[in-house]
Design a protein around this nucleic acid. Structure first.
Lengths: 135, 135
DNA sequence: TGTAAATTTGTAACGATTACAATTTTATTA
DNA sequence: TAATAAAATTGTAATCGTTACAAATTTACA
């Protein structure tokens, strides 16, 4: 996605595409690592020396409200963000802390969102030990 | 469950059944409202005037580690706790904030815990508007 | 009963997130 | 283009849930 396309996407959701917002959104699109706000802040600082943490938090909230990213609460102590909006689950390795995506079938998704009432959002979180951390 | 049975349950998991711990565990068994630590603290204060928030947090952590309760992170800003250990999902009403249980079939559970790697824990969170809050 | 270990308590510290006001940037209008 | 208004960014301070810690209390055990 070019900068122009990123800008257009933001604008189409009613978000003014400032440099900072484009940078945060682009970071999330390019890094499917489910980063925290602070991780993004530190990574983007090199290219955006004036960036502030508050802007990262504000941007993440704006993008989330606009439906461009989702907020992941698989960790109790910090929020992570994800630009992949297709339905999928998240697996967190209790060894290394990494969060992996895994697919959810259409059938599973509709099953889970139908019950008990119609649901607008769905999050599936699992934890275990990833192959990389297995002894 | 009698106090004696509560104590035995705690002891069987290697947790010394102090008054405070029994009280917290009993509260969670009797109130299936997925309370926060602070909610439990304020509710238990009447019967346990010397209770401290720290004890509620410590107890919740101990019970959780022992597998007697689970920690729910459906809200980004606060942890909730749940003594119902049978597999089920959680639905949070965006209107009133209440969290409801809903059933998960054995099939769904095994489907979700098998993929992508063997998972030890599973949490399914949905959000929407509950019938009580619908216009 | 006496002593060591475990637990509770209250306060202080911590860390993620948000509030806020000043500054800077962007959009609008003449 | 210049002037003005509106929006966004920034940095600091505040907030709030949670944890660390040390003193006091309770429990377990010899």
């Amino acid at each position: 996605m070019t900068k122009q396309e990123l800008s257009d996407t933001l604008r189409s959701r009613g978000i003014c595409p400032t440099q900072q917002r484009v940078a945060v959104y682009e970071y999330l699109l390019r890094h499917r690592t489910h980063p925290t706000a602070d991780t993004m802040y530190r990574a983007l600082l090199a290219d955006h020396p004036s960036l502030s943490r508050t802007t990262v938090y504000n941007t993440a909230r704006a993008l989330s409200k606009a439906g461009l990213i989702r907020t992941i609460t698989i960790d109790a102590d910090e929020q992570r963000f994800d630009a992949e909006m297709g339905q999928h689950g998240h697996f967190r390795c209790t060894g290394c802390g990494a969060v992996y995506d895994f697919p959810l079938s259409e059938q599973t998704v509709s099953l889970l969102t139908d019950s008990p009432y119609g649901a607008d959002t769905l999050e599936v979180y699992t934890t275990g030990v990833c192959p990389h951390c297995k002894p």
